[in-house]
């Protein structure tokens, strides 16, 4: 028993030396969605709280995200989230891509696939109520519509 504990502690200490490569943070994002589109304050607040940690360059890393093995998880999720959709690069997207992402946002938010289940456990503010989800969907739908109004 004691031996097992020692081994576990040793492993824990050793994995701290494996670099987690947390994606870089940047506050300077002139192409960000919230700067380039006219997003209502309540929606903007929800997006910041529920999406921006993984879907923007403005990730806020809590202390435990620097501790392995959590750091590996956070690193992977942030990297994959940004790759899928990065709100910091929004302005650079074509209208068609914007429409596609807005459509996907509606799908994900409606089906409850986003935010990922594990996320609100440590970020209670990120939890979206039914009403929140509806507001986001209405916003996304209207925004997508407005992209192709002549």
């Amino acid at each position: 028993m004691k031996k097992l504990l020692v081994i576990l502690i040793a492993i824990f200490i050793l994995i701290q030396f494996i670099p987690a490569n947390l994606p870089d943070i940047s506050d300077n994002n002139p192409n960000d969605l919230l700067l380039s589109a006219n997003v209502p304050a309540d929606i903007s607040k929800m997006l910041k709280a529920s999406c921006y940690d993984c879907h923007s360059n403005e990730t806020v890393y809590p202390w435990y995200s620097y501790v392995a093995p959590v750091s590996f998880l956070v690193s992977r999720d942030t990297r994959e989230g940004r790759k899928k959709l990065n709100f910091s690069n929004w302005k650079k997207l074509s209208k068609v891509k914007k429409a596609k992402y807005l459509d996907e946002i509606i799908d994900e938010v409606t089906e409850g696939d986003m935010p990922m289940l594990i996320y609100p456990i440590t970020h209670p503010d990120a939890k979206l109520s039914e009403k929140d989800r509806e507001s986001i969907n209405i916003w996304a739908e209207n925004y997508a519509d407005s992209l192709f109004e002549d």
């Binding site: 068609v96 596609k100 807005l102 997508a144």
Partner: peptide, 12 residues
């Protein structure tokens, strides 16, 4: 489909 939805589908 609305235009934005159609474009999203086409792109997909």
């Amino acid at each position: 489909l609305k235009t934005h939805k159609l474009l999203a589908k086409l792109d997909n």
